[in-house]
């Protein structure tokens, strides 16, 4: 039996959840899951290319954090595994799918691809393909909120930034450098580590001297919390606390969400190193099933209502594919467009 780190316990009774909120969380996670399943299908059918990293299994983190924020107003920064963060941030599924198809209607106009989803409108600062490089960018966005409020007298500038990255990024200098600066200047930011245990084939324990990442916050005098990343209500609760802290000007939080990717690193990864036992341990903790059970047990939703959400999302995904397929390719005459701001 594989030895797993003890997941922090969380009592759903300790959190307030309305029916409406519960269904919204469920819908967002279903959207993430169905979207990624469709991506795998489309990739194998030759509709999308390059490196495609899917988010299956980690949905509770994206949904729990971003739904605790003000989507479209607060900032979100992602990695190469960015489709679902984009969706949670409000980028329409059809725009994300069209980007994967390389179409002109994609959120990055077909210039970015799977690892480079951007949306100014939805305050998605982007998918960054080099490990940890999004951390400084997100830190800069958080600095901007503070700057506007303190130097430009903009009282409405209370935006928070959520910066997502993985366990692999936490051994990179940019992680430590930015934690230092964010704590030093009390920046309104959430550093959200999605610790899925594996940096491609490098097991987390083989890469780091202190596997409990949230503890690294303490040396910067900043809040650090670990959370069961397979429980959306637990993630949402720590995110709400972190967001409140950030908006109050009390500085950043490092959130370590213990999670697992249900697929390989990318669709090109043979996934040969992770043991069957380990996978089974985590598959049994599917965050979507967990929320569904909670909603039905607490009489917040019926099976029928959940089914309706699933059908609605399936339809949305099918429409996204149709949209992507029928969208035009980028105009070859615009090959040079977007290099400079005036283009």
């Amino acid at each position: 039996m594989v030895q797993e780190r003890t997941l922090p316990t969380f009592s759903a009774a300790s959190t307030q959840l309305s029916k409406e909120e519960g269904l919204r969380l469920y819908e967002d996670m279903i959207l993430g899951r169905y979207f990624e399943d469709k991506c795998a299908e489309m990739y194998y059918r030759g509709k999308m290319f390059g490196f495609v990293h899917l988010y299956n299994g980690q949905e509770a983190v994206s949904t729990g954090v971003i739904q605790a924020m003000r989507p479209g107003e607060d900032y979100v920064c992602s990695t190469y595994r960015d489709h679902v963060h984009a969706l949670s941030a409000g980028v329409p599924a059809k725009q994300v799918m069209a980007e994967l198809f390389g179409k002109a209607t994609g959120c990055s106009k077909g210039r970015g691809g799977s690892m480079h989803m951007f949306s100014q409108e939805h305050r998605l600062l982007g998918g960054y393909a080099f490990v940890a490089e999004g951390i400084p960018v997100a830190t800069g966005a958080a600095f901007q909120s503070k700057y506007r409020r303190e130097m430009m007298g903009d009282e409405s500038a209370d935006q928070v930034t959520a910066c997502f990255f993985g366990d692999g990024a936490c051994n990179n200098g940019q992680f430590f450098e930015c934690l230092n600066m964010a704590a030093l200047w009390k920046l309104p930011i959430l550093y959200v580590v999605e610790n899925n245990k594996w940096a491609i084939g490098m097991a987390h324990e083989r890469a780091t001297s202190q596997p409990e990442i949230y503890k690294k916050a303490s040396v910067f005098g900043m809040a650090g919390v670990e959370v069961d990343g397979m429980d959306v209500l637990a993630v949402r609760q720590v995110a709400q606390e972190a967001v409140a802290r950030a908006r109050a000007g009390e500085g950043p939080t490092l959130i370590e969400a213990l999670t697992y990717r249900f697929r390989g690193h990318s669709l090109a990864d043979p996934d040969e190193l992770r043991s069957k036992d380990e996978k089974e341990f985590w598959f049994a903790r599917d965050p979507i099933k967990k929320l569904a059970a909670h909603l039905t047990e607490q009489d917040l939703a019926s099976q029928e209502e959940l089914k309706q959400i699933e059908q609605k999302i399936q339809q949305e995904i099918d429409e996204a594919v149709k949209f992507a397929e029928s969208s035009p390719e980028p105009d070859p005459n615009e090959l040079y467009r977007y290099i400079f701001a005036e283009d």
């Binding site: 600062l125 400084p136 830190t139 800069g140 600095f143 940019q174 450098e177 930015c178 230092n180 600066m181």
Partner: peptide, 22 residues
């Protein structure tokens, strides 16, 4: 800034993306 060229330069990019002029 602290002596962290890659991080403060990246921060400037984030600030520029969100409307400042670093």
């Amino acid at each position: 800034t602290p002596i962290a060229e890659n991080s403060f330069t990246g921060m400037a990019v984030g600030a520029a993306m969100t409307g400042l002029r670093p």
